[in-house]
Design a protein around this nucleic acid. Structure first.
Length: 656
RNA sequence: GCACCCGUAGCUCAGGUGGAUAGAGCAUUUGCCUUCUAAGCAAAGGGUCACAGGUUCGAGUCCUGUCGGGUGCACCA
């Protein structure tokens, strides 16, 4: 086993707060064992009010019945017995049956300052795979796709910050009906040749052109017949239509990668459906499914002539009618079948692999690979074979995801089935007001609704690049008016950073189960609970630090006593405490799979600092020791917030 | 019909494994720029946590039911 120890320059995890939390619950647990002979898990929580102390333990409530004593009594005994026993704890207090803990503020701050509480995180060789974005390569990306990509990308960043090895995949369905429809539009409606389409595909906004074309053709009567003919050609991999399919899909994928890169989103590998077909991934999977009797050949009823998975495999109380067709009566495989094969590959269970070639090198030097069908020109790189897999897919597809998981289980891979996680989220819909602003005509039915669902078919949606452009434009106005002295290039860079931040924060602040009612005016706001508000706090902190040419050596000028004295001031202490909670918050956010928790934490930090900034004039502080504490806190805050923002995929601008 | 998600302030949303007086932003009203940047800070009003039962020392949180809203339930992906 190879075990890599990686020391980050930015220290990670297991910080002072974290270890103090653990040592307290361990001490309480030990005390209970030796003095009461009881073994209960000791949980800690954050008190509702800061005046109760830094940490609260409701353990006395849990024990009241078992020990036949009033909670208050138990808590008092615990407090008496534990006082002076734990380093870093100044006092225990009892209130309403709670055992409240007061930290030794001087010790705590000093510990952070000297970095004593830090441990390095060990990298494991286990790999986690996250699949996200997965946009059909037939039109421009819209904000619904952005929610997927930003959610996935942020979750990847969060896991990486925790020391997890992550591989990011973006599945490309380049042989599906959606691509076929656009190809049909070019061929049958626009009467273009493959060469002509290739020429068109060179324009930067080819995805916009296809957006319009797709919504046009999708609503035409004749599309069904065209689609069948086109799909046939694409699947066989031969003929002009197939060639055109590749031209369209490749060009659109390129557009999507560009759009995502604007938001700092990158991929390690793009597995494509065309390779899944050509390399006959399905054939292997089909044999496995038959062998394990996960599917059976239906001889009667509506599914006669198909290979189906019984409904009982993925649904309770399922009847005959709940069976899911995996192979159609004409012998072709359905999406779910292909997805089971793909899922097997992700876990390294298929016994087949793609070939890969370099698709592009990102500005930061990392490379994005794409699957290819032949060995020639391919590179020796390894993808797939993960121990856990996250599929970032919206909640509307949960039924299909259940079928895929059932397939894994039926094939005898219950562990992998458990580790195949549908990272689901609710859709992004538009408010009727926003539709009106965008000049979208609404039906009477839609006007009455609170939200309107987007639809690529109808061309109804907010394009990602349009929104990013609007955000940049808006940020540019602000930046220009505030910093006329800076160069145009520099101002544009800042405006872009603000725009990206604004968008990412906007899509991250909602929890995954919440339907986002996208309101353009709200999304374009830079005030209140927005990304730019958070960035602004970081920039202000940096502004203070920048004005001190030589920062003192805090370790030597800030002994424990000085820190303790200054941190007697409640709001200063609270800010320090909040700032030191990052790792706990990050861990909880990863475990619950909720990036919103980290985003909101960033906002809370910014709020805390904004108040600090207003209440304390760091640079004007006359008392030198106090000034040093304030300076150190500013620096510590700036570092922690920047770390948080980077994990969210957000940069801190030089100025705002 | 069945399954999943949602219902908390006028609006948009937070409220880890049940815990102390239910929070934030927006909007409204009102203060604060000779100041480390006002993309900011402070204050006020605004709540039967959809409803009804249950579980227990304790329920916005867990269970059941009802009522609203959304989304799925193809030989489409």
């Amino acid at each position: 086993m190879i075990s890599l120890k990686v020391q980050y320059s930015v220290a990670i995890l297991k910080t002072v707060f974290h270890s103090l939390e653990r040592s307290i619950s361990r001490a309480v647990s030990n005390y209970l064992q030796t003095n009461y002979a009881v073994d209960v898990p000791v949980t800690t929580e954050q008190p509702k009010q800061s005046s109760f102390g830094e940490m609260a333990l409701p353990v006395a409530f849990q024990l009241a019945k078992q020990l036949k004593k009033a909670p208050v009594m138990i808590a008092k005994e615990l407090a008496a017995g534990l006082t002076g026993q734990i380093e870093g704890v100044a006092a225990f207090e009892v209130a309403n049956g709670y055992l409240n803990v007061r930290f030794d503020r001087g010790w705590f701050a000093r510990e952070i300052l000297t970095g004593n509480g830090f441990e390095t995180q060990e990298f494991s060789i286990r790999k986690t795979i996250v699949e996200h974005t997965n946009i059909n390569p037939n039109k421009a990306a819209h904000i619904g796709h952005l929610r997927n990509a930003i959610l996935g990308d942020t979750f990847v960043r969060m896991m990486k910050a925790m020391g997890t090895r992550v591989e990011t995949q973006n599945y490309i369905d380049n042989t599906g009906v959606q691509v076929a429809d656009v190809v049909a539009a070019f061929h049958f409606v626009e009467k273009k040749t493959a060469a002509e389409v290739a020429e068109l595909a060179k324009q930067p906004r080819f995805d916009y052109l296809c957006w319009d074309l797709y919504s046009k053709v999708a609503q035409m009567e004749e599309v069904k017949g065209w689609r069948t003919e086109t799909l046939h050609s694409i699947e066989s991999g031969e003929g002009a239509l197939s060639e055109m399919g590749h031209v369209v899909a490749d060009a659109i994928v390129d557009c999507h990668l560009n759009t995502m890169l604007r938001l700092g989103i990158q991929y390690d590998v793009l597995p494509r459906e065309s390779e899944i077909l050509h390399l006959k991934f399905w054939a292997n999977c089909f044999e496995l499914l038959k062998e394990k009797q996960a599917i059976y050949f239906e001889t009667e009823g509506k599914n006669k002539g198909c290979w189906v998975m019984p409904g009982s495999a993925f649904r309770e109380n399922a009847g005959e009618e709940d069976s899911k067709v995996i192979v159609r009566s004409n012998g072709t495989v359905t999406y779910v079948g292909k997805d089971i094969a793909y899922q097997l590959w992700k876990f390294g269970l298929l016994g087949k692999d793609f070939y890969y070639r370099k698709l592009r090198t990102y500005p930061n030097g990392s490379v994005c690979y794409v699957s290819t069908a032949t060995r020639e020109g391919s590179e020796r790189v390894q993808f797939g074979g993960g121990t856990s897999v996250y599929n970032v897919i919206d909640s509307r597809q949960s039924y299909l995801q259940d079928v895929v998981v059932a397939g894994l289980k039926a094939l005898g891979y219950p562990n992998q089935a458990d580790k195949s996680i549908h990272f689901s989220y609710e859709m992004v819909a538009l408010t009727p007001r926003t539709c009106v602003e965008l000049g979208i005509e609404l039906s009477e039915e839609d006007k009455a609704k609170t939200t309107v669902e987007m639809s690529g078919r109808k061309g109804l949606g907010v394009k990602a690049d349009d929104l990013i452009d609007q955000l940049i434009e808006r940020a540019q106005v602000e930046v220009d008016s505030r910093h006329a002295e800076k160069s145009q290039e520099s101002r544009t860079k800042v405006a872009e950073q603000i725009a990206v931040c604004s968008l990412r924060y906007f899509l991250l602040k909602f929890t995954r189960t919440s339907v986002i009612a996208f309101d353009l005016q709200e999304a374009l706001s830079f005030e209140g609970e927005t990304g730019p508000y958070v960035q602004y706090a970081a920039v202000r902190a940096n502004n203070i630090l920048r004005k001190v040419p030589n920062l003192p050596d805090f370790k030597s000028v800030l002994p424990e006593e000085v820190l303790r004295t200054v941190l007697e001031t409640e709001d200063l202490w609270q800010l320090l405490l909040d700032v030191s909670r990052l790792e706990s918050v990050l861990e909880a956010a990863v475990n619950s799979g909720e990036p919103a928790a980290l985003a909101r934490y960033a906002f809370q930090l910014a709020q805390g600092f904004s108040k600090f900034y207003h209440d304390y004039r760091v640079l004007d502080e006359a008392d030198e020791a106090r000034r040093n504490v304030l300076l150190w806190m500013t620096m510590h805050f700036a570092k922690q917030l920047e770390k948080t923002l980077n994990t969210l995929g957000i940069a801190v601008p030089e100025y705002m």
